[in-house]
Design a protein around this nucleic acid. Structure first.
Lengths: 117, 117, 117, 117
DNA sequence: GTGGTCTAGACCACT
DNA sequence: GTGGTCTAGACCACA
């Protein structure tokens, strides 16, 4: 879990994406507590405000719940919800776009897949 | 060849990407002259400096050659070079990343492909 | 570190060259922060965009690294890299060209050198 | 004698420099006729106006003489004059600058020269 | 605070 | 005609 400083996507998005990944993989399970803003900020040498911004994204997506005075917690059905929404996005957006791209470059995906096995 | 004004990616990148596409498709063939900065700027209601910035990217990638006082020309092996580099990037970066992503979400790509047919 | 306004070479190149020099001499050491675009612009009475252009060159050469929202930093091995590339260019290009030039004009370089001592 | 279109120095300067070189080496000797503007323009696919501009530089330096209705001729003492001025420039400008540059990069010119032998 | 993008308009060198 | 450079000023995202 490293931060790419040299640009690309903003730090707070990188962080949010990584937290989503941890939830998706069940490393942070439903209802688990999440490390505090300060903890994460110190660990990655990030400004705490930036960490907050990442958390806010997750709160807005209802993946994470703020408990006043206690900290952040993974939402009760966060994992299930995350898997569902990601699968939807994959099928509707990533897959067709990727498929088209492969065609444009003259690749036959079914052959590429067979080579993987 | 339209500019998406509300896109997140800057105009000059959009423009560069579209020019790459035109070269890739052979619409601008090797050694062809490319419409002038001012022409493109007028056509799309863009500032000439913005168009210049797009061209500069392509010159840096050696897809386009400047001839002083004359204008921009497609590089001698631009198309071939472009196809090669794109295919390389696809195989080394996009394909593995996409494949991993599908696995994480529990998709079997070979089944998805069969459904396409 | 002065700007030559009446020089043939553009300001942004002069500036880039001067920054390279400062890195080469170790005045800006590896990983150091570099004065901000606005600061340099104010100091030399240059437009910030012009300064940006200079920095962009250095970023492209991987001598300088951008940290989003924070500023520019000298790359981790910038100095070493700079010395190596300059020495290479000297031996491969400047030295043979200069040598040929001296021969054409009928100079014996080894005599010139002795006179220096 | 090739033209570098991809930038660097302007075409007319490149051409003038190359003509100077030919005179210096005695390929165009004193009082010789020089190929016409049109001839050179056709040979190198250059605009005749550009060739004229190069000639004008040489005329201004009194290396070349225009004979109305006849064409361009190498000046009567062109070669001698050229060698003298180039040698002067070499000693006063190129040599010290090159020497300093070598020092900055940590090269010992006298050793480099010995290796040439 | 940082840099990134875009504009409008000016002036320049080159072909 | 071509592109290159520079300015002044605006607005934006990011940390």
């Amino acid at each position: 879990m490293k931060i790419e400083w040299h640009d690309k996507s903003p730090i707070y998005r990188q962080l949010a994406e990584k937290l989503r990944e941890l939830i998706l993989q069940g490393i942070y399970d439903d209802n688990d507590a999440i490390p505090s803003v300060r903890q994460i900020a110190a660990e990655h040498h990030i400004n705490p405000l930036t960490v907050s911004k990442a958390f806010q994204m997750l709160v807005d997506e209802q993946l994470v719940i703020k408990k006043r005075g206690l900290g952040m917690y993974v939402g009760p059905h966060a994992r299930h919800q995350l898997i569902a929404s990601e699968r939807k996005r994959f099928l509707e957006q990533e897959w067709p776009r990727f498929n088209q791209r492969a065609l444009d470059l003259g690749f036959d995906l079914s052959i590429l897949i067979k080579e993987l096995l």
